[in-house]
Nucleic acid binder design. Structure first.
Lengths: 133, 133
DNA sequence: ATATAAATTTAGACTAATTCTAATATTGTT
DNA sequence: AACAATATTAGAATTAGTCTAAATTTATAT
């Protein structure tokens, strides 16, 4: 069992029960959940939980580099526990989003055409293994 | 001056004045505009224009491959006239989005780990030339 | 050309995600 | 324990986008 309190303290975030549970949820659910999904999952555990807290917390976690918001075209925020850089593949049929590793020639911290690259997001789209069968 | 009527006809889209002007605007404004920006720019030209028409038109153009919607983390749709594949660089300081060319080892139409890739979107983030000065 | 059908555009109501705000609760510090 | 600082909360407000049904425009057949 991971010590989320310590992870938060290390990032100078005071570890409220809400923050601990949100971080734990994101770590255990690598499905790029939305605020609504996080809310529905945690409301049984923290009955007073407000969505505002989730919005605040996700913004704070993103700023501290604990999580990442995933660019998408649906106008709903999706969030991901931050681990080693990886890319996303979205299936056009089943709409599922998979984590995949792609060796793209971009290195964090280097310059491309004079632009200093601190982060990248690669989203591939197409048909997934299961849907092609 | 490009013949947008012809471009639309070639894609089997009947060329209403609204559609022509929206396509022309996207071609001349490669700044990944939102529906609101398109609306404000065209309302002086087409005073009866409705936002619904813009939403409908952008959806139609995307389906026909004339334009692309750009994944982002702000929950507002951004659209781009579709040209040869290119990537986007978003500056964390000035928030501008630049078109850039990155040679990433992904080829449209091929398989990666069994996933059939039909399209990709690469968004780089960092500090742009101007802001680094 | 005219009548009719089909497609497009429109305004306004509606929904859903997010932000704002101000009050309350919690936490940390002396 | 008292106080200040921080975090959480509910609900109102905002905003992007969708839905709907009527009105307009366009295309087709006579």
């Amino acid at each position: 069992m991971k010590d989320y309190t310590k992870i938060l303290r290390d990032k100078k975030i005071s570890p409220s029960i809400q923050r601990i549970k949100i971080l734990e949820f994101l770590d255990n659910n690598r499905t790029h959940p939305t605020v609504d999904e996080i809310f529905s999952s945690l409301i049984p555990i923290i009955p007073t939980l407000s969505k505002m807290t989730i919005y605040n917390t996700l913004k704070l976690f993103s700023a501290k580099g604990l999580i990442k918001s995933i660019p998408n075209s649906e106008n709903v925020g999706h969030y991901d526990y931050k681990v080693t850089p990886h890319s996303h593949f979205k299936c056009r049929k089943c709409k599922k989003v998979y984590d995949i590793d792609v060796d793209l020639g971009v290195t964090i911290g280097t310059n491309i055409d004079g632009y200093q690259v601190d982060e990248y997001n690669l989203i591939l789209e197409g048909i997934c293994k299961d849907c092609k069968k």
